[in-house]
């Protein structure tokens, strides 16, 4: 199977500012996550993959050709940008239909394609709404619909989960997984580790324009070594929950903050098991359980230190 994406020693300058620095990267298929802090270079790389910008140096090929100079290959790419700027005066259906037409779907089939895409992302009932009236979650789903309406082979989704509420997040993750199950190659970016984990085990971590780690997320976690992970347990009796967990040997520290207990652990899996056991034993009511080790700065710091 040939690689869908081949990036070879790519750099990108914006004037005197370096956006990407000598990146080499291959994606053969499946879902791959691009993880990095804001300004790390994720969107620059994704724009290059979508053919919006050209590398200043190096080569970038999607399905064997440059998406910037070869308009044809862009018909095999579906791109959902990070920003929400679009033609807000249109209805959702108009927007998706017209973008499907512009992506090469014949006019006679564009309406059917738009309807199908909107059904796939759960926006069929909102098809007549003006884009400007949509919530953030609906905008994200609409962007996803514009990216898939022409049935592309490669999806490039830039921060598709940014700013959406937890319910919409679960739904969008499910939709992306469905697309992956249908054989699409999907490149998805995020600055939140657990968002990417919900989508794929294959990630590349980008920092200051360079890919600092790539591969299986478990392997990258292993490279993170014994750096403690933090879990925030929001519940009605955080002191009781903390007391129940305090004796576990993997727990390094517990902090009480208002209505939550923040647990630092060196063994994330065992900690989750123990939290479940503690909840059953004490009867505390948990309203949210959030892994705080998504602090990507710490992850990147750890990776770069490990590599040096």
């Amino acid at each position: 199977m040939s690689d869908a994406i081949v990036v070879t020693h790519c750099s990108k300058w914006y004037g005197r500012i370096l956006g990407l620095s000598d990146i080499s990267w291959r994606v053969s298929g499946g879902v791959v996550g691009l993880l990095g802090q804001n300004g790390a270079g994720k969107s620059t790389l994704m724009k290059m993959l979508a053919g919006l910008i050209a590398p200043s140096r190096g080569t970038l090929a999607v399905f064997g050709t440059s998406p910037f100079s070869d308009a044809g290959v862009r018909g095999r790419i579906g791109y959902a940008p990070e920003h929400d700027h679009t033609w807000d005066e249109m209805t959702v259906f108009d927007l998706v239909t017209r973008l499907a037409e512009l992506a090469g779907v014949p006019r006679s089939r564009a309406r059917d394609s738009a309807n199908h895409a909107l059904e796939q992302v759960g926006m069929a009932t909102a098809r007549a709404r003006r884009v400007r009236t949509l919530s953030k979650g609906m905008r994200q789903r609409t962007k996803l619909a514009t990216a898939i309406a022409h049935d592309p082979d490669l999806l490039i989704l830039d921060e598709p989960l940014a700013g959406v509420d937890p319910v919409a997040r679960i739904d969008i993750v499910a939709r992306i997984r469905e697309l992956a199950a249908r054989g699409k190659t999907i490149c998805v970016s995020s600055h939140v580790l657990y968002e990417i984990e919900a989508l794929t085990a294959q990630i590349a971590v980008i920092d200051r324009g360079r890919i600092v780690a790539e591969g299986d997320i478990a392997e990258i976690r292993r490279r993170l070594g014994h750096r403690p992970h933090r879990i925030r347990i929001a519940c009605d009796r955080p002191r009781v929950a903390a007391a129940a967990l305090a004796t576990a040997e993997h727990v390094a520290r517990i902090e009480i903050t208002g209505d939550a207990a923040i647990v630092e652990t060196v063994d994330l899996d065992r900690c989750y098991d123990d939290i479940a056991a503690a909840v059953r034993a004490t009867g505390v009511r948990v309203s949210a359980l959030v892994a705080l080790d998504s602090d990507l700065g710490a992850v990147v710091d750890s990776l770069t230190r490990g590599g040096s």
């Binding site: 053919g51 308009a71 290959v73 018909g75 940008p81 973008l99």
Partner: peptide, 14 residues
């Protein structure tokens, strides 16, 4: 000048 142009440039249009 509008970032919506990304929708056009990412399509298979010269």
């Amino acid at each position: 000048d509008d970032r919506a142009v990304t929708y056009l440039w990412s399509r298979p249009l010269a």
